[in-house]
Design a protein around this nucleic acid. Structure first.
Length: 819
RNA sequence: GCCGAAGUGGCGGAAUGGGUAGACGCGACAGUCUCAAAAACUGUUGGAGGGCAACCUCCGUGUCGGUUCGAGUCCGACCUUCGGCACCA
């Protein structure tokens, strides 16, 4: 009678022991190769939900596996601790953001420990602590010095509910706030920006990093590079200094089809060009489009409207006079903020021209076109017509030809445009890293000197939903002296976007207590780049793009010597419940703590890995988890119930059984190792289950010797150690293994031992399975053919037919083609 | 609308340099144990038809075509679901 598997007891026991022994403490001075395995750190929301487990448990298994393989593994954990919810809690419940955050961290640390991961807690990083955000501020200064941070007035995304500015990336699906879902509007504000656009081209290059294609495509689309031509249209207005309007187009071949010009309502030329009689109408239109929220304005459903401003420009290619309109479907922030209207070959221009009865002139002929009017815009390539000297040219060649012509004349130049905008980092909020800048009436914008960092957040700020940072009303914070001239000056009261904090946290883990620099350069050199970065795909664009930008900027400052922060990236899927995304309002939230208390962390870890491919995610199912629980129980009893060879078994049977046992064992090692390498945890677990089932049968037959049995169990436990670290450790100890199993070497397979001696030869007739014959691996083609033709199961299917061909695939099948 | 991923038993999912479809697990059914139940263990489990039986035949990986000795896997068209982007000129 063996004792029962009691996960709660053994998990507590080993977690305490590992911590006491500092088993997972990581040091650099090591002769082993390094492996930096990073999981995206959690936001301090207060509770670790099953999604966190899904991110953390499998990545811990992989990290443990690499560690047993002999790598010096850094697998750290920390908290992304600045951000809006803390402040909202302050407004709603009167609890200080710092207190709220630190309480949440306390709770989350406890929950994180229950996973049983190899986190080295002495390396924990918390972004809202001055020892961390001091360096976030420091990086701001460095970016400023490098000319990568600048202040500018910009129409910004404004969330009226959160009362703050949002980055483009934080505006979701057509104009809603990512956080609260309110409709975003637009405002003009003085804001701080990072010049990420300077790195747009380099960010399009993913050479040398192993990232999912999906994410690379998303980032590529986000950056949105397009090749085109900037074309200058002549402006000849008395009293107007500007002598041209420049447009950006990807279709220079359609320039002869321009019948109007459209400027963005905010375009600087609009006020000077508008004729006196159109002034009122134009101003009203501008005011209207400013009032519109982002959703309304950007909606593709919205009918394209605009206003003629009473001015004209000149198309230099054909000398035509072109009326100038404004319309809010043209964005100031893209290209030149002006578009040439070619209704025949652009859907938007077509709709616009129809609405206002503007001429539609075909300049690229659709196939078979006889000069009739178009029903809709023709955007495909074709033969150029109505285009002067370019007539008859295929439009693809026309793009080049027209561009060359324009360049020769000095009327235009080929250029590229990007969809990506500079990164707006100002937030009108308290709970973030202060922007270390001072405004002096005499000296202008003055950076806080490095030695004065950190600019600390005052503890006694007042939290009111005013739309401005509480820092703005904190006089002691705001009022300071100019570091340059000593005169009274005012501090910047905006704080930084939290994505700034998460753009460098992985550097801090390498030397979390370094106090004279953001990180110890030698340690960064040792650990970086991150070898495997795992986390949710929701960060495909923002965090992952910002971090890449950050590293490239630091590299150009000489602070790091690599180009990319994350060598390999992997995105796990999401866990749903009852066919739906988990949410409090649906009441379908799975809380891991309950399952850990009932079934143990090892079961929850293994279940999350088993339920679906990690990449895909899947549905949590209460009855499926019992399969894992049963399996671990079976392992427990299999190992502890003792083994005795049956004395009546003869030597030949024993030899054969042991040969088979060792083959199965080595095949299992191979499968488990390869699956772990590829992060195929679900099939890794099923291999372990099959091995367990097989060992159960071996035990029943009792044919192998005790040493052979013990060897197999020893290997099973080591293969199980990353997945079920507590159970494996306990069984390791109980079977006399040396502490700790987690310091043991990962088993290696012997290809010779793993190789099968016999195979199943599949016999097909015309591609249909007719027989399976067990044959030695060494079988020759002729022998195989003989066996196949002799098969009683095959013969009837060949009756009365002529054998036309025999396909033989060694080690697999033989296909008899008969007619 | 554009970009991307995916459609396999009652369910989660295995199997893709084309070669035994359904590994492993859940559920269900039957059995063992028990006074009984739970737990545990053992067996069966894609569908249809046939045989006393070991077994045999046909159909079957979203739909329709194609390539091939052979297609879940490759090609073409389409349908559905999910994710991302959304007036980017």
């Amino acid at each position: 009678m063996t004792i029962k598997y009691n996960p709660q007891q053994i998990e507590k026991k080993w977690q305490e022991r590992w911590e006491k022994d500092r088993l997972y403490e990581v040091k650099e001075d090591d002769t082993r190769p390094k492996f930096y395995a990073l999981t995206m750190f959690p936001y301090t929301s207060g509770d670790l939900h099953i999604g966190h487990w899904y991110a953390m448990a499998p990545s811990d298994v992989h990290a443990r596996f690499k560690r047993m393989q002999g790598y010096n593994v850094l697998h750290p954990m920390g908290f992304d601790a600045f951000g809006l919810p803390a402040e909202n809690a302050a407004i709603k419940r009167g609890i200080h953001p710092f207190k709220w955050t630190m309480q949440n961290i306390e709770n989350m640390r406890r929950q994180l420990r229950s996973i049983g991961a190899i986190y080295d807690w002495s390396r924990e990083v918390v972004t809202c602590l001055p020892e961390y955000y001091k360096w976030t501020e420091w990086f701001f200064l460095k970016l400023y010095e490098a000319g990568l941070a600048y202040r500018g007035k910009a129409p910004v995304n404004w969330c009226p509910r959160c009362q703050t500015v949002l980055a483009n990336e934080q505006v979701v699906s057509g104009g809603f706030c990512e956080r609260c879902g309110a409709a975003v509007t637009r405002r003009d504000l003085e804001q701080w920006f990072f010049r990420i656009t300077k790195y747009a081209d380099e960010l399009l290059n993913f050479d040398g990093i192993d990232w999912p294609e999906r994410i690379r495509i998303m980032q590529t689309n986000w950056i949105g590079k397009s090749h085109g031509t900037e074309i200058s249209f002549t402006l000849d207005h008395p009293g107007v200094e500007e002598k041209e309007i420049r447009v950006f187009t990807t279709r220079p071949d359609t320039t002869f089809g321009v019948t109007f010009m459209v400027l963005a309502p905010e375009h600087p030329l609009v006020p000077v060009l508008t004729s006196p009689e159109k002034k009122a109408e134009v101003e009203e239109y501008i005011a209207k489009s400013r009032r519109l929220s982002e959703i309304e304005r950007l909606s593709t459903e919205k009918e394209k409207d605009g206003v003629f401003i009473g001015a004209y420009c000149l198309n230099r290619l054909n000398g035509e006079k072109v009326p100038i309109w404004i319309a809010d479907y043209v964005l100031l922030s893209y290209g030149t903020g002006a578009v040439m209207g070619v209704p025949a070959h652009d859907e938007r221009d077509f709709a616009f021209a129809k609405k206002y009865n503007l001429p539609i002139r075909v300049v690229v002929a659709p196939p078979g076109w006889q000069g009739e009017e178009l029903e809709e815009a023709y955007v495909e390539p074709g033969i150029m017509v109505n285009s002067g000297q370019f007539n008859g040219l295929p439009s693809e060649q026309g793009m080049e030809a027209v561009s060359v012509f324009l360049e020769e004349k000095g009327w235009g130049k080929r250029t590229v445009s990007y969809r990506i905008r500079d990164w707006l980092i100002s937030r009108q909020r308290y709970w973030g890293a202060p922007i270390p800048m001072i405004y002096c009436e005499k000296c202008g914008i003055v950076p806080v000197p490095e030695e004065d960092l950190p600019v600390l957040l005052p503890e006694d700020a007042e939290f009111r939903p005013t739309g401005e940072s509480p820092l703005k009303y904190h006089e002691q914070f705001v009022n300071t002296t100019c570091p340059r001239c000593g005169a009274p000056a005012k501090r910047e009261t905006d704080t930084m976007d939290t994505f700034m904090c998460s753009s460098w946290y992985f550097l801090r883990y390498t030397s979390p207590h370094c106090d004279n620099a953001p990180f110890d350069a030698d340690k960064v050199k040792y650990w970086m780049p991150v070898d495997l970065y795992t986390g949710g795909a929701e960060h495909a664009v923002m965090h992952l793009l910002y971090s890449r930008f950050f590293i490239k900027a630091l590299r150009d400052m000489g602070l790091v010597d690599f180009d990319e922060p994350f060598k390999r990236l992997f995105n796990q899927g999401i866990i749903i419940a009852e066919k739906q995304k988990m949410s409090k309002s649906r009441g379908n939230v799975i809380t891991p703590d309950e399952y850990v208390a009932e079934l143990g962390a090892d079961t929850v870890r293994a279940y999350l890995m088993f339920l679906a491919p990690w990449e895909q995610g899947g549905e949590w199912n209460d009855s499926s988890i019992s399969g894992i629980s049963r399996w671990l129980n079976r392992v427990w009893h299999l190992v502890l119930e003792g083994y005795r060879q049956d004395e009546k078994v003869n030597l030949d049977t024993t030899k054969k059984a042991e040969r088979e046992l060792s083959r199965f064992t080595h095949q299992t090692i191979k499968r488990v190792t390869e699956d772990l390498e590829r992060l195929h945890f679900n099939t890794m677990i099923s291999s372990l289950m099959e091995f367990t089932n097989y060992l159960g049968k071996v035990k029943e037959s009792a044919a192998v010797t005790s040493p052979a049995w013990e060897e197999a169990i020893n290997i099973l436990l080591r293969l199980l150690a990353p997945t079920a670290p507590h159970l494996a450790e306990e069984l390791w100890e109980r079977t006399g293994g040396e502490y700790s199993i987690h310091n043991q070497r990962w088993p290696e397979w012997d290809a010779e031992l793993a190789r099968a001696e016999e195979i199943t030869l599949v016999v097909q007739v015309n591609g249909k399975l007719r027989d399976r014959i067990t044959v030695p691996v060494s079988i020759t083609e002729d022998e195989a053919k003989q066996l196949a033709l002799q098969s009683q199961r095959v013969k009837p299917h060949l009756d009365g037919k002529e054998l036309a061909k025999i396909i033989y695939v060694p080690g697999r099948l033989i296909n008899l083609v008969a007619r």
